[in-house]
Amino acid sequence: MPKINGNEIRPGYIIEHDGGLWAAVKVNHVKPGKGGAFAQVELKNLRDGRKLNERFRSEDKVEQVRLDTKDQQFLYESDGKLIFMDNITFEQTELDADLLGDRRPFLQDGMVATMEYYGDEALSVRLPQKVICRIVETEPVVKGQTAANSFKPAILDNGVRIMIPPFIGAGEDIVVNTELFEYSERA
């Protein structure tokens, strides 16, 4: 695996640090008035979800890890485990449902998601960026409420609350961005 300097760490990089695999969530480059520059990095453990703030100087060497990715189809959830299937080999993989966190409601039956592997160990799953959801409940349209940035609250069929434009009503399908939890467009 390639070694990189501590100041080359970018958000999204996976590094091996303190005997674990960590994803760089936020990186802030600091140049104090006295002393050398460093990168203040917020790391998230890929195995147990712990967070860590660490300083890396330019002379520090860290190992960057490349994860293998495979597209797999979501089958079902059982006892807090998500079951996915490889569409080519038909092998099934289990992942903790906690790994998805807030994005769990957007996982739909039959959805194809991208699994990330370190060797043979499944570490995480990435959902498609855009998912189609149905609006179950929202406020009725108020005549004259056409201001450019006016939004109203809505509840989706998966129970998630988001803000939508005023011209969309209950029963309509919309496209939701799963990373930002925002309305994207009509379906």
Rank of each mutant, 00 (worst) to 15 (best):
D79N: 12
L100F: 03
E54Q: 15
K26E: 12
D68G: 14
L95V: 02
L95C: 07
H29F: 10
F38Q: 09
K81N: 10
Y76E: 15
A39I: 02
L100A: 05
L100W: 01
E94S: 14
A23E: 15
I14Y: 10
R57C: 07
R50T: 05
H17Y: 15
F90Y: 14
L46V: 05
M85P: 00
D96E: 14
D60A: 13
Q72H: 07
D60C: 07
L75H: 01
I15F: 10
A24G: 03
N28W: 11
R57W: 12
L99S: 10
K26C: 04
L75D: 03
A37N: 12
L75Q: 04
I14G: 11
F84I: 00
G101L: 09
G80F: 07
I83K: 09
A23L: 14
Q73S: 09
D102Q: 13
D60I: 09
N87P: 03
E91Y: 03
E16R: 14
A97V: 05
Y76F: 15
N87S: 08
D79R: 10
N28E: 13
V27E: 11
L21A: 02
F90T: 10
A39F: 00
F90S: 11
K34W: 07
L52K: 15
T93C: 07
E94Q: 14
A37Y: 04
N45W: 01
K70Q: 12
L21F: 01
G101E: 07
T69C: 11
K31V: 02
N87L: 14
R50W: 01
P32H: 08
G12A: 05
T93Y: 05
M85G: 00
R57M: 10
A39W: 02
A23M: 15
I88G: 02
F90R: 14
P11N: 14
G19V: 04
E54P: 04
I15E: 07
L67E: 01
Q40G: 10
L100N: 00
K26T: 10
D18G: 10
E63P: 04
E77T: 12
E59W: 12
Q40M: 15
A24W: 05
K31D: 01
Q92V: 11
D86F: 02
V62K: 14
I88L: 12
